[in-house]
Design a protein around this nucleic acid. Sequence first.
DNA 1: GGTTTGACCCGTT
DNA 2: CAACGGGCCAAAC
Length: 113
Amino acid sequence: MGPECGKFERGMFAEVYEIVAQVPEGSVATYGQIAAILGMPGGARTVGWAMRQAPERLHLLCHRVVNATGVLSPAHVFGGQEAQRARLEAERVTFLPDGRIDMKKHLWRGPVK
DNA sequence: GGTTTGACCCGTT
DNA sequence: CAACGGGCCAAAC
């Protein structure tokens, strides 16, 4: 593979995008979890950062990434939490009456282990 | 090359 | 239970 073989964006963002892309339907990952997989314990903010800058051309599955509490991101991100929730529900992700994702059921267990 | 930012996480008040 | 602050890290300005 050449240095510019039509790959993703450079930097550790690419790693984040790849991890997110590996999350199967019906599962969700947390920022801290992804950060830990990348070898950045405590770097949850950096992951969220990559998501903010996330280029749409990658068809990001960022809607499967939530915080550790299972709460969706602020409204101004996905065009409304309602939109993100609808996407997750379409993937058979169940929500608790609290409005949070049932992390115990859908929390991704990592790429492979 | 220092400063600012950001979709976080956790403990404490 | 809700609000506040500190810590942590990498990219953009």
